[in-house]
Nucleic acid binder design. Structure first.
Length: 263
DNA sequence: ATTCTCACCTGTTAGC
DNA sequence: TGCTAACAGGTGAGAA
């Protein structure tokens, strides 16, 4: 799924290619993806001047001052391609000036959202999320650990209002990195170690351009590499010790644990 | 207030 | 083999 490292990879890719290019044409074939409905037509003639990220949310600002929040949810893909034949899952196409490639939004399950932020609101008000997992300070992180001391590690990591960006893949991999069971309460872990683990796992994901475990692809349509380095997530056996991975439900998600490496 | 459940979708996999 | 049911997991809304 697109989590922080996947979204970071897409955002940094788009920043290299499509900033400040005039949007010649906007085609939306699934109006329900946009809010307000039909709001994306206002992008015609405008251009993106800033593309950034908060957690898994993509934040876009245009030359005319419009703000856009794009969320890929489960199966959203945002990429640039030349000579691409859109299939039935492509729902938004942006044609950019002086560029052979077009921008495509493809989303099999149509869970994703393109939202126009109302003029009076800022991004932070609009996005219901805590501090970005790679922007949190050690001091702030310690406070979060104290406040949510009783929560299970995985529940803590997955809650976007506490810390933004970690999803199922990186939560399981973080617990593995720490060598602990994801049911472990936060107050049983040293905040410094926990933050170091989250940071290390997310950065490794970014370094490898994200994990293409299902539909995720980069902004050029390429697959990531991190799926080849996962230790427990969707693994049959632990990559480190070969022990069969135990699958349990935690926080409503399939959770992968190596019974030998994680106590 | 906090925590849980469901709805949103469709492709893939498991099981009969 | 062919069909159906369960599953995949991010978010927001509504219920408990």
């Amino acid at each position: 799924m697109p989590e922080l490292p996947e979204v970071e990879t897409i955002v940094s890719g788009l920043n290299k290619t499509c900033l400040c290019r005039k949007i010649k044409k906007v085609r939306v074939s699934c109006p329900a993806l946009a809010s307000p409905r039909g709001g994306l037509s206002a992008l015609a003639g405008d251009s993106f001047v800033s593309i950034s990220r908060h957690g898994k949310y993509i934040k876009i600002t245009t030359r005319r001052g419009a703000r856009l929040v794009v969320h890929l949810r489960m199966t959203g893909q945002l990429f640039l391609a030349e000579n691409y034949q859109p299939d039935k899952h492509v729902h938004i196409i942006l044609e950019l000036a002086n560029m052979a490639a077009k921008m495509y939004y493809r989303d099999i399950r149509k869970f994703g959202r393109w939202q126009i932020v109302p003029p009076r609101k800022n991004f932070a008000d609009y996005i219901n999320a805590g501090t970005d997992a790679l922007a949190v300070t050690p001091r702030e992180f310690r406070a979060l650990c104290r406040r949510y001391a009783d929560k299970a590690l995985k529940v803590f990591l997955l809650d976007q209002t506490i810390l933004a960006g970690v999803g199922n893949i990186y939560a399981d991999e973080t617990a593995f990195y720490l060598g602990v069971d994801p049911h472990t309460p936060v107050n049983r872990l040293a905040p410094e170690k926990l933050l170091k683990a989250v940071t290390a796992v997310l950065r490794l994901g970014i370094k490898n351009k994200g994990a293409s475990v299902s539909d995720y692809i980069t902004s050029t349509g390429a697959r990531g590499n991190f799926q080849n380095l996962l230790n427990v997530y969707k693994q049959k056996n632990c990559r480190r010790c070969g022990t069969p991975i135990r699958r349990v439900k935690l926080a409503g998600r399939t959770t992968h644990i190596c019974p030998k490496c994680q106590k």
